[in-house]
Design a protein around this nucleic acid. Structure first.
Lengths: 217, 217, 217, 217
DNA sequence: GATGAATGAGATTTCATTCAT
DNA sequence: TATGAATGAAATCTCATTCAT
């Protein structure tokens, strides 16, 4: 019976779609609130207002829901990465950066539980692990593309600069998650100019060999 | 004397201390290997070679063990932070930094499971959450003390520079955890000079606004 | 709808109600047979023919089952107390009393395990303790109402007479429990007249053989 | 090795006797406080200040301690029963009765946990059950001996009167246990005269105070 | 005699998953 | 489609009892 396929492979009518969407949103909320590991299928269906059995009509198991959420997250993150514009070196660039960062933090917050779950290296599902790497990789590539356009600190490999930037972004979202949504605008006001200076402005000084420079003194 | 106080409140003799130590080490290993969430008390005692009941003689439950490990970790981390030397601006500084980073990564790796658990923990235990904040805070303070000694990029607040540095350190330890211990020396070779340049060398160019100020002189 | 509310708070359908009833009866049987303390949840489900997990679908734990049973017992006891009729001073009264005593002993026997548990319970559950007091109190009040209608031994306060009667009733049910159900009719035959004489006949008249006395008239 | 005999069969020196006595008292306290079933060997040794292992030097197990306590209780109860004096029909009898009741309640309270444990019919140890019956029987016999001396209500068999008296005594000790020691003197003041009238005064004469009232008529 | 430590059988409890309607 | 009910494997935790010093 084709109805036995639990996931969204089945053709869903309007009602089914709505139910699935409810479950997806509930999963997002619950995972973000109490974490993937502590979340019970019960918590999810309690949140969505559906019955226990219904869950298994749409998802094979808890992992399957996580995977579904992860795919959605990935889509949004990859889109976001691609949409990172060429950052202007002037004040306009700061604004561009701020807007983009805001979107990043928003998405990150929404998918918090999912992202955490896939960062936890001991994910049962190998597909998920692969997949986390892919997303991060794509993201890093997109960042690098932008950073490569700037000749700042050319002696520091662009991968490392991208890694540093990514680390900072993650830490910021961690801060937002910890300190609450309200901290966000304030954070962005500080962060956008700083990142702009640190990563997207060409440095005005001779690139390398400062030691040599001193030696010539 | 009551045997039923689970934690180390009891006065322990040599044998008891040894057993507790065995359990602690086993906990460290198991948490690092399969993660706190997936770890069972059974895994810990299997590793330590003790019986199931013995575990509960020393720890009230898995959380209690985590807390004990976390305190130890905190002690080492705080010590480490305090021992971060004044970093020389020249090549000696790179070596200093490399040595210190190596220790950082070593400790981080040992306590990997613990740190993860407390980063991810959705405040299952409030003591743990408080405590993670404290350790991170102390660490950041120690980093700031060193960074403040350098006038590099003085227009970027020292807290943010410290945060960035911390974010990078964490990401590095994440990389080490993912790629395996072997990646470590190579990573340090790349990382130490980079961090030295990026954080502990005075920049050779006039800082941002002061530039204008000097120009008007 | 949340499945994880253990008690009967959930709306139960016919099937669920039947299961719960099965567990309740099993609990009654098991507690009466082997006692609350020695009873295991396993014994209860074994008796009811349900699976272990099912128990926890309806009751949070053994205490919770006890409480449920206690409430039922209380209902029946309070009803019974209210239905204690005005006891006739003549032979009809002996029959009335006998009938009522029979019911009392029947209920008492059915809820034997529960009553014992709540009499002995060292206030493991405060609700249960409160509640035992309430039931006993209600019962005593009802007894007093009947005893007050008789002027026998008016210098002995009615509360004390009620207490004495209650004490006797309890001891009788203890005897029934110990000696087995078969002892019951014999006991009632002895008890009913005695209690009638001791508690429900006005004093001040020649103690014995009123029938003979009348016959000589 | 004769040391393996756990109970007090061994010859104990002064130190051993003191330890055993400490354990016995601790057992009495703990059983009375939290009940035999809930009491752990740990609770007992914690109370006595001895170590866990020491307990098993003196008692084979928890049941063995209970049995020891039960024997002591029995001794005191049997003595007490024997010492119930011939109760005077006049006011002196009320005082006699009060004194004796006081002792009864005191002993009952001290051995509360023990008595409860042996009343709970589901005692693992059959010796204990037998034994409870014996004590109660002896007690009832002693009561009957006294009651038989009085011709009050001779149509009510003396066994039943003894049973009723016993039931009342037990209930009183239950009340003392529930309401606390302070209720005791007040209870005795009410109880002694009442029991005296109800059980130890020959009937056939007008009740206590009304006698005067009628005489003045 | 005394004690701290160790053990493991057994009880409790949870929860993902399946079933029947 | 939806749902309430049932299941049982697996985990947690307790504690009487034994052991070794």
């Amino acid at each position: 019976m084709p109805d036995d396929i639990p996931a969204a492979q089945r053709r869903l009518r309007a009602r089914g779609l709505a139910t699935m969407e409810r479950l997806v949103q509930a999963g997002l909320d619950v995972f973000a609130t109490i974490g993937y590991n502590d979340a019970r299928v019960d918590d999810v269906v309690a949140r969505s207002g559906d019955s226990h059995g219904t869950f298994y009509l749409y998802f094979g198991n808890k992992d399957d829901l996580l995977l579904t959420l992860a795919f959605r997250c990935a889509d949004e993150m990859v889109d976001l990465a691609r949409e990172l514009p060429v950052i202007d070196a002037g004040p306009a660039g700061v604004r561009q950066l701020r807007t983009w960062l805001d979107r990043f933090l928003t998405i990150h917050e929404r998918y918090l539980g999912v992202i955490r779950a896939w960062m936890e290296s001991h994910v049962a599902d190998e597909r998920l692990a692969d997949f986390g790497r892919t997303v991060l990789g794509d993201f890093a590539v997109a960042l690098m593309a932008r950073l490569a356009e700037v000749d700042r600190e050319p002696d520091i490999p662009v991968e490392l600069r991208a890694t540093a930037l990514l680390a900072l972004l993650e830490r910021c979202s961690y801060i937002v998650a910890t300190e609450g949504r309200l901290a966000c605008p304030r954070l962005l006001d500080t962060l956008a100019p700083m990142l702009h200076r640190g990563f997207f402005q060409p440095s005005g000084r001779p690139p390398l060999r400062p030691l040599v420079a001193r030696a010539t003194r």
